[in-house]
């Protein structure tokens, strides 16, 4: 199991991480080149989004406990983990079924 520790929602289900962090993560699937830049020049990207040192460290570590520690939205945690972890991306994928789909289509 990839995950082990989670705690990121208040009782009301409201996320509490700063929007700056959420904005960066949600833009990874929307802004062309951002994911590549996050890998090649993370400090510049982090500063563009106004992240604190703690937030930068969390995103560099990119582990479930780290992401949960600053209460990042659950879906954005998943998107970030998939974006930063090739084995996670391979698990959350339909690539093994594509031949079947194409054959039946």
């Amino acid at each position: 199991m990839f995950f082990s520790i989670y705690l990121c929602l208040s009782e009301e289900g409201l996320t509490v991480a700063r929007y700056e962090v959420h904005r960066l993560i949600q833009n990874l699937t929307k802004v062309p080149g951002l994911l590549d830049r996050l890998s090649s020049e993370p400090e510049i990207v982090f500063n563009e989004y106004g992240l604190t040192d703690q937030e930068k460290q969390v995103l560099i570590e990119a582990s479930p406990p780290a992401l949960a520690s600053i209460q990042i939205h659950p879906i954005l945690q998943m998107l970030y983990l998939i974006a930063r972890n090739p084995s996670m991306a391979a698990q959350v994928s339909i690539r093994d079924y594509l031949a079947t789909i194409h054959k039946e289509a």
């Binding site: 199991m1 995950f3 989670y6 705690l7 990121c8 929602l9 479930p64 992401l67 949960a68 659950p74 879906i75 945690q77 998943m78």
Partner: peptide
């Protein structure tokens, strides 16, 4: 399913 919250998985 519990996604990235306690009971995840």
């Amino acid at each position: 399913h519990w996604l990235c919250v306690p009971r995840h998985g």
